[in-house]
Design a protein around this nucleic acid. Sequence first.
DNA 1: GTGAAAGCGCTAACAT
DNA 2: ATGTTAGCGCTTTCAC
Lengths: 355, 355
Amino acid sequence: MVESKLGSPPRTKGRATIRDVARLADVARMTVSRFFTNPEQLHAATRARVAQAVDTLSYVPDRAAGSLITRRSGFVAFLLPSLTNSNFAAIAHGIAGTLRPANYQLLLGNTSYSVGEEERQIEQMLARRPEAIVVTGERHSRRCTQLLMNAGVPVVELADLPTHPIDLAIGFSNREVGRIAATHLLSLGYQRIGAIGPGRSADSIDFRGEERLESFEETLSAAGRRTDLVLRHGEPPVSYRHGALGVGILLERESKLDAVFAISDLGAVGAMMECQRRKISIPRGLALMGFGDFDISTEMVPTLTTIAVDFESLGQKTALLLLDVMRGKKIGETARITNVGMRLIQRGTTRKVAD
Amino acid sequence: MVESKLGSPPRTKGRATIRDVARLADVARMTVSRFFTNPEQLHAATRARVAQAVDTLSYVPDRAAGSLITRRSGFVAFLLPSLTNSNFAAIAHGIAGTLRPANYQLLLGNTSYSVGEEERQIEQMLARRPEAIVVTGERHSRRCTQLLMNAGVPVVELADLPTHPIDLAIGFSNREVGRIAATHLLSLGYQRIGAIGPGRSADSIDFRGEERLESFEETLSAAGRRTDLVLRHGEPPVSYRHGALGVGILLERESKLDAVFAISDLGAVGAMMECQRRKISIPRGLALMGFGDFDISTEMVPTLTTIAVDFESLGQKTALLLLDVMRGKKIGETARITNVGMRLIQRGTTRKVAD
DNA sequence: GTGAAAGCGCTAACAT
DNA sequence: ATGTTAGCGCTTTCAC
């Protein structure tokens, strides 16, 4: 006979509580609690009785109640601009997969590339007391930065490398993307080199394309080339259509255009399609390259030259870093920024014109 | 002077609680609570004082604590097989967007097309006491069905139409997809018609492809055609590569193959690429069609004939339905299943050979 | 190995 | 318009 044997009648409505299980197994609530956190501690017979009761009632512990006292919500928040972009989906997958064995759950928030949405999402997330927050991109509104700094939990800025991270940063340099792309096209001897990326929009938080374009431009300039074929049009996110339109605009601007870098494979693929419609052969008539190494890129005819970052592994590394920090490991100043790098994958769309 | 004026010292560590705010604003905790749920009820001056305190302390209410007593977690669980598939991403986007104004948060779970993962995810979700659960696909393990039926909250089975829904169902019929595809190809007079879909795998919960293939097969049979060109190979999820390999296998099996239905646009696009590599002209040498109306499909040259379902709107409808149910609206037996239908979009990859 | 008391941060219900 | 009491479901802590 134990504490809660007498009292309220058995519940019939709603989910069973730890009380119901305790009553049915004729043990204290604490014993039921231990059944989940430290089953070996229980006497085999007790354990069996509790297991039976848990099963009968289909009992699932309420983590919200538990976390109130343990102060561990088991949530990690991840804010991304778009679920539709498979690079972000890959990161999310990497994080979630690595966090699960440690019994953490990913709380996904979609900012739709909007500053306002990012703020709203961060507040929503904070209400759930995440044990860590992962945000995408490097620039955030004052208020976002404020909220993140006051969050009192590890914050990771992902997929871009800020010079002054709020806390932790892991990713790659978008400026390096532009530089590698320009260097590649220059080294192959292309003469009239263009690029396609998005323009600036008021509420956007996505500057990744712009950074790729800027450094691309700078590298061209440094080589003494014209930069008027670096096209900014439309708004992020870019798309197949964006690339198709872009190459059209560029060809109008310079009919002898011989190479184009699109800030995303999506745009590059769209440009390839447009070239097919215009009977421009690739890479003979026009060389193309992108960024992201999307699935489609290896399937294209010819295959698309691109710059690849392993996003799934980026997500995994992020999760491992967070796991360390959440377990109390201290991170030195130098280890706050991790550059995972990238690699140029030369494929069929950028062969030398006369090779 | 109020209840909590005396007591523990001001907190310096961790997030502020409602107590801290109440103390700073010199009001009762309830007043702070009301500031968030029903601000108009407060005297303007009081409201201002509370607002000030909230701001000073960067206070964000802890929803876990609140939901413990309101019994409203504010979560809706959504289990999908893959984030990378843009159709599912579109559904998730539709649900999340429609739910947000009502202050619900989507809890996303990735099952990776695996039964075991689905069970694990459902348990994880239940521990968060979601107010509704949305699952994808129609077949679930015994245990999953059990868990869902005992959940005590609305359950929506999405993107497929089961004959006996656990609770609610909304989506379309995969059998109809196969039927429409076969009918379309037959009506155009194609003679040697094939199809490409995944085989069956042990742990998979994804039978959507199989259902499309089955009804496709049946429709061919009913028209007196051969069905040995309906190819099942590989495992879900399908991909560009899957389609490219598939069309290769089919061409080996029947060199006069003149039309192919891929159960996903991804496969159809892959097949198109393979044809390009083999110098098979489309649709003259081979007609192709897919399902899903992915972004890429309108960009292909020629554009891809497909069957479209508006997934974003499917997500929105799901959310609206759930909002109704969660607000206590009763749903009649007949209204438990919603068929959102689909439409055939004839584009460039299926023109009559001699038109 | 097991139990009882206390309390996490919040709000429903009932005062005033 | 504001305050007080009680308690949501769980775990920490200490007792046995």
